[in-house]
Nucleic acid binder design. Structure first.
Lengths: 365, 365
DNA sequence: CGCCCTACCGCAATCGATTGCAATACCAGA
DNA sequence: TCTGGTATTGCAATCGATTGCGGTAGGGCG
């Protein structure tokens, strides 16, 4: 009966033809007048008139129509593991800041570190005709990304990289950050420092782990393979699991360099389960400097990354790849610093007395 | 010279015509075969053939072209104050989960609580032809949103509302949450409880404040106007400012209900500046249950919101508004609960002895 | 005065899909 | 055998903008 279905919006928005008509010119002329790049092709007076009419009518070009014709969407895809990881929001904001200024916008997707989801999401992004990708889910071996790269999909990796060095990336200086952490702990007198490494299949995991070994040796500290444990994921749970394992195996250590802040938080959990106190019994250094770390119990000492800048830099780089494809891709390493807080303390007492399960020195109240 | 500029992608993607040709039918038939709703119009055998060819060629319909013709983008806009506020990521994920399942996707924008930016961003979203808006930046008086609503722009408000009750919204049950907080503190023996209210121009601010007064009276507690202070913004800084003001004016209180978690964090700052200890000297309850609150010093007792569900519910509601515009808009109030942690303690000692500046009972070490 | 060139503008095709309408074929019933 | 219907499919217009190409007018120059 009354099954009339008017096209969702009767298009109250004025279109180019309306502007053209009102200005007494052809749509083509109006189009050229509106576009700064082609404005030179039309009489200055005419252009002025078109502009005025357009503003008066409140004309807004329809990006859909434009995209269809120009095959450009001014749109990029953002692929991150999980937005609720506090590391990402500041990065995302940095990215959007740059994109917005350049007239681009971004689709945001969360893979939850599931390769199948990643595949699906990237497919979907591509079918939405994104012009580029910013990807934070790289694994060292990453056939999907490598194949996309070979297909000429513009992308820049953030945070993590693949083995393939040709793919542009923006990462923090993991090696320097790790060295900073070790140096700090060594300076506090720690000799047996453990490392709860991130997963071996991520660049950050292996780079930080190898930087850790180097730093340990440089400072002449205990270079015991038992002191390094790999976490299967960058999560609090894995951190707790790894730390507990260390404690339960009776591995002695007075400090730990966590692969990232979440893993460090896991250490906190493990400590409280084992009746240890941080930093009195064990010092901990995190990595990333997520928000609110200064309010933790205790405030976490960590390697601070320029989150916002990572986003800014990545977005700039991607725009460059898009707008001047000839340029050689490059990768940048952003500087880090150490945020010293309350989770690290100088080693008191004599020596070697480290934390081991069962002989906690400060039982929990 | 070599200034050849091939259209960005020579469109290696097969298009509908390619599929049609390969299947030996007209594009129109292929289109109908591919669309489940119109598949009935074509011979079953033909449809099968088209589907097979499409899959073989890896055909993906071009959503741009489709949108141009159908005037539907299957896209919505998300307007939030600031993604780095940990309250939002879980909500956003809830939203995207529902949208994704329904074949929609979302543009995310941050207003930084700046009305001009908000205006610009919403304009931009509209020109990108979003089919609806999810807005988390509502103020009680909000001409922009009200006008959009009158213009028939589908939207649902989250977290906060406007005065205009017709606009659908999804919010937590602020009144109950506040009552829970007060009841908890009263149960611990507190008599003089302060409230650091959120801004008066937000619904959450006024609802929580008024619920606070009600609860205070219901429990027969000190109903002193001095005990309520308004924060100009929902930020840590404002919380610190408000709490410090209270302390410096010598207003006695042994507990405070903060307008939200960030304001509660500000209290922590103020306490440490004034040499007070939480919860020994003053108890604090937050609101929102942001992530990681359990790791704070002390772990913050707070009113827990169903973040994810807020997103889910809002997205569902928006889709409903879009797909069946006839339905009457509704608003939902989601249940909250109290997460009791370490920032609240029972009132020890005798009576009335509250926290005031200058006579801190536990000077900071 | 005629020709060429430039500046400006309009025509019409195009991007890739959707969809109203028309055409065809085939079948049943009269 | 003719008519009406139904099931399929094709034709062509359309969404709103962009752009190659052609046309016109007017100025400069010979």
């Amino acid at each position: 009966m009354t099954k009339e279905q008017p096209p969702p919006r009767p298009s109250e928005q004025p279109k180019l033809r309306d502007v053209a008509k009102a200005a007494g010119v052809h749509a083509a002329t109006a189009s050229r007048a509106l576009n700064p790049d082609t404005r030179g092709l039309v009489n200055a007076e005419t252009a002025r008139r078109v502009l005025k009419v357009a503003k008066a009518l409140g004309y807004r070009p329809n990006p859909i129509a434009r995209s269809l014709k120009t095959a450009r969407t001014r749109t990029v895809g953002l692929v991150i593991p999980d937005l609720t990881n506090p590391l990402f929001p500041p990065i995302v904001r940095g990215i959007e800041e740059v994109l917005e200024a350049a007239g681009y916008s971004a689709w945001l997707t969360n893979t939850d570190d599931d390769p199948r989801r990643e595949q699906t999401l990237i497919d979907s992004l591509r079918s939405r005709q994104v012009e580029g990708l910013i990807v934070a889910t790289a694994r060292l071996r990453h056939p999907l990304l490598e194949s996309l790269h070979r297909q000429g999909v513009r992308m820049v990796l953030i945070n993590r990289r693949t083995q393939e060095p040709d793919i542009p990336s923006v990462t923090a200086d993991d090696a320097v950050g790790t060295a900073l952490a070790v140096k700090h702990l060594a300076g506090l007198g720690h000799r047996r420092i453990a490392h709860l490494a991130g997963p071996r299949h991520t660049s950050t995991g292996v780079i930080r782990a190898s930087a850790f070994r180097h730093a340990i040796r440089d400072h002449g500290l205990a270079d015991d393979p038992e002191l390094t444990v790999e976490c299967a994921q960058w999560t609090e749970e894995e951190g707790a699991r790894a730390m507990s394992g260390l404690l339960e195996r009776g591995v002695e250590c007075t400090a730990v360099v966590a692969g990232n802040d979440l893993i460090a938080l896991g250490c906190y959990d493990a400590f409280s389960r084992h009746g240890l106190s941080c930093p009195d019994d064990v010092s901990v250094v995190g990595f990333n400097d997520m928000p609110f770390l200064d309010k933790l119990r205790p405030p976490l000492t960590t390697v601070a990354l320029p989150h916002h800048d990572i986003g800014v830099e990545a977005a700039r780089m991607l725009l460059e790849c898009i707008e001047e494809p000839e340029r050689h891709p490059r990768s940048v390493l952003l500087p880090v610093s150490l945020a010293v807080r309350g989770s690290t303390a100088s080693l008191r007492g004599s020596t070697g007395a480290g934390a081991t399960a069962g002989k906690a020195r400060r039982p929990r109240r």
